[in-house]
């Protein structure tokens, strides 16, 4: 039983790491109704900026601030050169623009900061907490727990921001209808630049945590693959949904990886491991059939 709980807890904590990436998607989608294909590339860009500045002798804290400035400038540039010309265009056009943006960022980031795989030491060692290991024989990582705490903090701040601030309400209005928002005086350009900058900040947090865990490298762009099923489950417009979706995906994929392959082997023989790559997508697909808007997503109703 201890093993089951170890897998479950490990899965929940991994799920939080997926949620961190998913949050960036949610922010942009809430503000512009665009699925930002470039979010994974932004995670890579942000983490690479941090290690790039560290390599130039800048201390960690200052590198983080500089990386945030880079991401903010990136957000402003994205609004100015990509999104501004696409106001009121169909969502698919905006989506295609973000695909182009992803390729651009994936090329630009290593050009600016180098493509070497580099470590990122943020002072957190990924080791088990001895007290839990000794008393319950369960491995719970100090690093993962801290990441979970950070994610919780981010979610609370973002949820309050969207719910209770004028800017947050403006963001939601823009997401509903660009032109209607413009007609009542909401400064669309500022709102978009702001939300891309905030998404850049979330990407920075996610990039630093994933980078500290696995090294800063191109593979950080793949973290987006883990965020997609999280979004489908949690809903594209819900910040708490990203967290809950992450928890469900993380826990279920780990439990599936441990318990399903032996069952399949006993029935079909052969080797059936490595299923956590596709299992979350199957789950998301099944979930789509039952609840297309996700657990916390807004139900879309059209008047006819």
């Amino acid at each position: 039983m201890a093993f089951f709980f170890e897998v479950l807890i490990g899965g929940l904590l991994s799920g939080i790491m997926y949620s961190l990436v998913a949050l960036g998607f949610v922010l942009i989608f809430k503000a512009s109704g665009v699925f930002n294909f470039a979010q994974g590339a932004m995670v890579y860009f942000a983490a690479l900026a941090v290690v790039g500045f560290i390599d130039k002798g800048v201390p960690l804290w200052a590198s983080v601030i500089l990386a945030f400035i880079v991401m903010t400038l990136f957000g402003i540039a994205t609004e100015k050169f990509v999104l501004r010309k696409m106001v009121n265009q169909p969502p698919i056009a905006l989506f295609m623009a973000t695909i182009g943006l992803a390729f651009f960022v994936e090329g630009l980031a290593p050009l600016l900061f180098g493509n070497d795989v580099r470590p990122l030491d943020i002072g957190l060692v990924d080791e088990p907490i001895p007290a839990i290991l000794d008393s319950l024989n369960i491995v719970v990582s100090r690093f993962d727990l801290t990441a979970a705490g950070l994610a919780a903090l981010l979610v609370i701040v973002l949820a309050l921001f969207f719910q209770y601030t004028r800017v947050g309400r403006a963001l939601r209005a823009v997401a509903d209808d660009h032109q209607a928002a413009l007609s009542i005086g909401i400064p669309l350009q500022h709102i978009w630049a702001l939300v891309w900058a905030v998404a850049g900040f979330v990407a920075l947090v996610a990039g630093m945590l994933w980078g500290a865990r696995n090294g800063v490298q191109f593979a950080l762009t793949f973290t987006a693959l883990k965020a997609l099923p999280v979004l489908i489950l949690g809903g594209f417009t819900s910040v708490p949904g990203a967290i809950v979706g992450g928890l469900i995906i993380g826990a279920s994929e780990k439990l599936a990886e441990i318990y399903i392959p032996p069952l399949m082997q006993s029935v079909f023989s052969g080797n059936f491991g490595g299923i956590e790559g596709w299992f979350p997508y199957v789950m998301a697909l099944l979930f789509l059939l039952v609840r297309p808007e996700g657990l916390f997503g807004e139900k879309h109703i059209d008047r006819v």
Binding site: F3, E6, V7, G10, G11, S14, V139, W210, N214, A219, F222, T223, K226, E253, K254, E257, I258, N271, G273, G274, I275, E276, G277, W278
Partner: peptide, 17 residues
């Protein structure tokens, strides 16, 4: 034999096993 799905940036379950 324990396989790891591509790209392998998440291996919690494999190492628990």
């Amino acid at each position: 034999q324990i396989p790891v799905a591509h790209p392998g940036n998440e291996q919690g379950a494999q190492w628990q096993r």
